[in-house]
Design a binder for these strands. Sequence first.
DNA 1: CGAGTGATTGACGCAGATCAAGCGAAGTGG
DNA 2: CCACTTCGCTTGATCTGCGTCAATCACTCG
Lengths: 242, 242
Amino acid sequence: MKTPCRDCPLRARPGFAPFTAHELEMTQQLKRGELRIDAGTPILTEGSGSRQVYTVLQGMGLRYKTLETGARQVLGFPFPGDFVGLQAAVMEDMTHSVDAATEMVLCVFDRADLPQFYREAPERAFDVTWIAAEEESFLGEAMATIGQRPARARVAWGLLKLLQRAEISGLLAEDGAVALPYSQRDFGDALGLSAVHTNKTLARLRDEGVATWQGGRMEVHDRAALARISGTPPTPRRRALI
Amino acid sequence: MKTPCRDCPLRARPGFAPFTAHELEMTQQLKRGELRIDAGTPILTEGSGSRQVYTVLQGMGLRYKTLETGARQVLGFPFPGDFVGLQAAVMEDMTHSVDAATEMVLCVFDRADLPQFYREAPERAFDVTWIAAEEESFLGEAMATIGQRPARARVAWGLLKLLQRAEISGLLAEDGAVALPYSQRDFGDALGLSAVHTNKTLARLRDEGVATWQGGRMEVHDRAALARISGTPPTPRRRALI
DNA sequence: CGAGTGATTGACGCAGATCAAGCGAAGTGG
DNA sequence: CCACTTCGCTTGATCTGCGTCAATCACTCG
């Protein structure tokens, strides 16, 4: 185990809920080790169970569902601090897949320890529920975006979400740029848009000086405009960490 | 309090996880009473908190988000046995609204009791997380449907989901018909389709002898066809109950 | 009996899908 | 070290699924 929870770099970041000493110890006890995964490797697969649950320590991933037709819906982009595999831990098996988009380092927890964790650290158990509820909330917002908003607003919303997550995780450079390991196709699949139309919409936003996305690099120039176009307030929220 | 948890009609139904005697008692202790709500009345409102959390005992509801543009995304249709207001209980406030679609009877729980519940009934706390994960799973599937499938498949998927939920809740009549308090507009808003196109798609499915939806009555004639058109296996899943 | 709501159907137009072609960067093997 | 492939981005042309508008009909309700 490389990183003791006490020294977890994520805890230090603003935007994450604080730990008590006892909670820290409980989490530490639960942690089974770390896992390093190469970019492009599957972490969890739809339809199969998993003995482990993870928290992302470093790197970024891709959560998605594949349909019979071959179409793919991207459900989200796991960032450092995100929980991965809750479904496998709580239900029988995963209803979506997760791949590593960059090389990733994951904190490994054992699914079998979860009941004990719930017994001995109910406050933290509450946080697990909190995370699930937060995810539910996010998916609801995404659903509303995909179902009701035109392409321009969808793209703006997606950029804003990525920006906020990058900010919280400390991945945002001074100049407002983030390195993202996602293709425009990935991004489009998250928004229910074709790759071509995603590109054209991004090009338009770029011409308007709102934001740039090319070659795995996103740069937001006018955050207020992004918020306006997407039809959302630019306010993020505090998140729990396990 | 009208119905003691011991006599809860939902527990008896197949498809719900069984309770131990002790769990039953804990749940009973948590239950604050029952609430009867008229059709069309708001239960919870987006953006506001709530002191209470509910389980639906009778009746059906509507979960939705309203966008700035006036558009509405329906996120789901709460049926008997469904949990309502988890977000308000766990996070600060709701990120969507819930209305009663019929007259409803709700089991009332107090948000403030939840931490104690987590301490004293960790197995049930686990189930709360299970419910949240299940909801997350459902929303993921809905997102994939809205984002990737054409109107025909979306409608078929929606019908299938409603059928499954009605079945589990025992609301499905012998002849395969269900009385639903939803308009075609509600249904369309759940699938990201306009009311007109929803109607036309339903008309086509009706002509083909697959299913009928008119005037608050759904009747599925060919379940296999629905599954095929929607591109999903017709298998439901067992659910937890609080 | 008028007013409002939901279902239904046809006509029309557009946002976004699909098809297609070209480009640069990165990898790969001979 | 250079052909050759692959992959992602880009842009234009064309097509179509679905949204929008609009009108009618059936019901329910005050």
